[in-house]
Design a binder for these strands. Structure first.
Length: 138
DNA sequence: ACCTTGATTGTTCCG
DNA sequence: CGGAACAATCAAGGT
């Protein structure tokens, strides 16, 4: 959870007309990156396979979903941290893709005028190769 | 569609 | 104008 500490209700409304989001799924962007899997999904990726081996005759993903959810809650913080770390990396990469995607759509129409326009370089240097596997035994 | 949880996003309101 | 807080949508997996 980020800084979004869910406060129950601060009585901050007069008419209760809170966010009504629409699907707006009509937009088709070929370059639009999908959302990266959350820690739970990353965990599920392996869990599904595991479950499939334990129950090769199962066909419902729903069953695996429920089982995964329960297992997930049964994991220790340290174990979950492993997936969270992976999700964190994926999220970072996703943000990078989004950056590129937005820039691609933004060929022109730049509201932000930068006096200095000499900067149009995307970081291509990949040096982050430190595989860190922190496993903490409880 | 079933189903899970987390993350991102959109919307509204207060300072 | 910006952040805080909340509400809703979306991400995959297999038949």
């Amino acid at each position: 959870m980020k800084g979004r500490t869910a406060k129950a209700s601060t009585s901050r409304n007069t008419d209760n007309k809170l966010a009504v989001k629409k699907k707006g799924k009509g937009e088709k962007d070929p370059n639009k990156p999908k959302r990266p899997p959350t820690a739970f999904f990353v965990f599920m990726e392996g869990f599904r396979k595991q479950y499939k081996e334990a129950h090769p005759k199962n066909k419902s993903v729903a069953v695996v979903g429920k089982a995964g959810g329960e297992k997930w809650k049964s994991l220790s913080d340290s174990e979950k941290a492993v997936f969270i770390a992976k999700a964190g990396k994926l999220k970072a990469e996703y943000q990078k893709k989004i950056d590129a995607y937005e820039k691609g759509q933004n060929v022109e129409e730049m509201e932000e005028e930068e006096s200095d326009k000499s900067k149009s370089e995307v970081n291509d240097g990949e040096d982050d190769d430190s595989e860190e596997e922190e496993e903490d035994d409880d």
